[in-house]
């Protein structure tokens, strides 16, 4: 992996909730304009790691980190870094669709407006919804409440909402886990089409999804005898799934497949 292709890089990252160390010693390099998936058993700290990338962890008052996350040549956790600015550039899609209880249009336009978007909002909403593969379904009902959409549509709206302010990275925490297989497929297709312009990091429980949709895979596990999770293997996806370097990865991956 070439150094200038790396967009996010962690150095000895440890994440705590109070005294409890949830994630320890993570050293990975997330490549630019690729899809990276994070897999691993429940409770090993996947969401925790993901949320550290745009400082959403800070919303839990007791949490703090040690180590660094380098983005754009800067440690995201330096004292002079603004978390709001970080989230402006590194967007997020959550496990459950969480549209604002406002109109579809407003959901897409809101963030652009608060960030001082000067172009035509109508145009922005349209192009963003097209990119999120939702335009055809909602173009006639833009003024309707976003809550009237189906779960899958809501989730694509949440992707559109994140896209509207053109972040460089989009973090997705099990974006399809609350959706049916068809809606899941749509999200996966959407990810592929976005890869051209965005870096995507996705947490998933679904091995097929990771194998199918991602370019790189990080495998997380609890460190033996502790409750702290760490990345035990990080490589190109087909390598992780066909020739895993770690016995535990092999067990997990094949166990899930079988």
């Amino acid at each position: 992996m070439l150094q200038n292709d790396v967009i996010l890089e962690t150095h000895d990252l440890k994440i705590y909730y109070g005294d409890f160390k949830a994630v320890t010693d993570v050293n990975i390099q997330i490549p630019q304009k690729r899809i990276t998936s994070i897999i691993g058993p429940s409770g090993c700290g996947k969401s925790t790691l993901l949320r550290a990338f745009n400082r959403m962890n800070e919303l839990v008052p007791s949490s703090h980190i040690e180590g660094e996350i380098i983005f754009d040549g800067k440690n995201l956790y330096d004292r002079d870094v603004d978390p709001v600015q970080v989230r402006y550039r590194i967007g997020m899609v959550f496990q459950r669709p969480n549209p604002f209880p406002k109109s579809i249009y407003e959901n897409v336009a809101w963030a652009a407006r608060i960030h001082g978007y000067k172009g035509s909002l109508d145009e922005l909403v349209e192009t963003t919804l097209i990119k999120a593969a939702l335009w055809d379904e909602v173009k006639d009902i833009l003024k309707q409440s976003a809550l009237s959409l189906s779960g899958g549509q809501q989730q694509r709206l949440c992707v559109a909402r994140a896209l509207a302010i053109q972040p460089e990275v989009i973090l997705m925490d099990e974006p399809a886990s609350a959706l049916d297989p068809i809606a899941t497929l749509k999200i996966e297709e959407l990810m592929q089409s976005l890869k051209e312009n965005y870096t995507i990091v996705i947490v998933t429980h679904n091995m097929q999804q990771a194998a199918r949709a991602s370019d790189y895979t990080a495998m997380m596990m609890l460190v033996e005898g502790t409750r702290s999770g760490t990345v035990i293997e990080f490589d190109e996806t087909n390598k992780v799934f066909t020739r895993p370097g770690d016995k535990r990865t092999e067990d997990y991956v094949t166990g899930r497949f079988g």
Binding site: D80, Q85, L124, Q166
Partner: peptide
């Protein structure tokens, strides 16, 4: 579209 944001996001500096 990108240009239409007053993109101070070349920096992460605290404002």
């Amino acid at each position: 579209l990108s240009d239409s944001f007053s993109r101070q996001n070349t920096t992460l500096k605290k404002r």
